[in-house]
Design a protein around this nucleic acid. Structure first.
Lengths: 220, 220
DNA sequence: TAGGTTGTCAAACAGTTGTTTGATACGGTT
DNA sequence: AACCGTATCAAACAACTGTTTGACAACCTA
């Protein structure tokens, strides 16, 4: 077994950092240990030596991807005096930067999305460690917007509506680029424009939605 | 080469129908021609005989998945006299039924989502043949809701906000089930509750959003 | 009946896969 | 020096991959 698990430039570290992009772009199955070892310039047997097997390397790559992503895009500070629009926009922007990352598509993001789409054991780790508290802090912002507290399930649905609008641009990026012209995309669908739209759209929805829920319970 | 491409219970047909679910749940790479032929109870060489290679079989399975899904969940009729809420709810429900299909997750849906996430040549076929007109008919409903016509890019963004809210429950189904308790999910996140929420949320957003776009251009 | 097309089959092919092995070298401790 | 845990390496292993082959049977046409 390996002894020092956290030296910085060790063979173990090189493997994780090279395996991440490959897993991200090809998926677990299509990524081969030979390609990973080639890119990392380590011997073929190193993966099994340090991680036991390919699956465990994948797990560690996912965990590392999350850690790196949080470091790369730190959460902006919330000022209690900020208006709801700016606060919500700050969070929407954070989702777009951290989890959507439209322009550069870092491997960490693509790997995390892979985990969301087809959860392995790594996903429950991500939820407990990251997604849950992340989502809760969004719901606190929603709480600030509405005057009367929302029923729990409505609160959750509203939060997921906001998250859904953002994550669409990650999940369906390939489809969107086939639907929208390139010029339109460059001009109107950059990070800031989307943050502004999703924020305004959601804010308007929350305020109006709570006020007049529409024919909710009735209507067959 | 094969002669009759459209006999109903032919070997060719059996292969497509058995390959679909396997591609859907495992992806192109992890699905093996041996498993497909076993399930279809045909000889191993049949795939290459009828489709040339595995890739072409995948393409045809995707196309077939779309056709079957449109048949399985037909578009409800639009009554011009219907109010905007009912009209929009009808369309949101159609997305949820056809493309999200939360309860049973048919293989056709999972295969189409796979194409959206990682587009192959099959995806541009899907867009031209299906997604584009589908999305356009949503935008027409949006047009009916607003009085003054929207700028093109805003129109598109609004449409994608609606679609995004729906598709979230397909893409992140695994994550959602880890965030929400099972009882909550059964009780409040069924197809009808979600359709109602997304419709009301979006309707409120559109009406309020257009009226007061918020601090759009200003604000640094 | 003869000949050709179409479909099915078992077997093999050539390449890739994750993993294991045994040898070898390095670096520190006794 | 002798020793031992750590690390790296080339090579091989066994299983699996998509695809090809050639034989054989069923069917239709002439």
């Amino acid at each position: 077994m390996a002894k020092q698990p956290d030296k910085t430039d060790s063979t173990r570290e090189k493997i994780i950092l090279q395996a991440g992009p490959i897993f991200a772009s090809k998926g677990f199955r299509a990524a081969t240990v030979r390609e990973i070892c080639d890119k990392a310039q380590v011997n073929l047997a190193s993966i099994n030596y340090y991680f036991g097997d390919k699956q465990q390397l994948y797990f560690e790559a996912v965990v590392r991807a999350r850690e790196m992503r949080v470091e790369q895009v730190p959460q902006p500070e919330w000022d209690a005096s900020m208006g709801p629009h700016r606060k919500l926009k700050g969070f929407v922007g954070l989702i777009l930067d951290r989890l959507v990352a439209m322009q550069n598509e870092p491997w960490q993001v693509r790997l995390l999305m892979r985990e969301i789409l087809q959860p392995t054991e790594a996903c429950s780790h991500l939820v407990k460690e990251y997604f849950r508290p992340f989502f809760d802090s969004l719901l606190e912002i929603v709480d600030d917007i509405v005057e009367a507290p929302l029923p729990q399930h409505v609160r959750t649905k509203v939060g997921l509506s906001i998250v859904g609008q953002c994550l669409y641009y990650r999940f369906a990026a390939g489809l969107t680029s086939l639907i929208i012209s390139d010029e339109d995309f460059q001009e109107h669908f950059d990070r800031d424009s989307l943050a502004e739209h999703i924020t305004s759209f959601s804010l308007a929805a929350i305020r109006n939605y709570v006020r007049e829920p529409g024919p909710q319970t009735e209507q067959k």
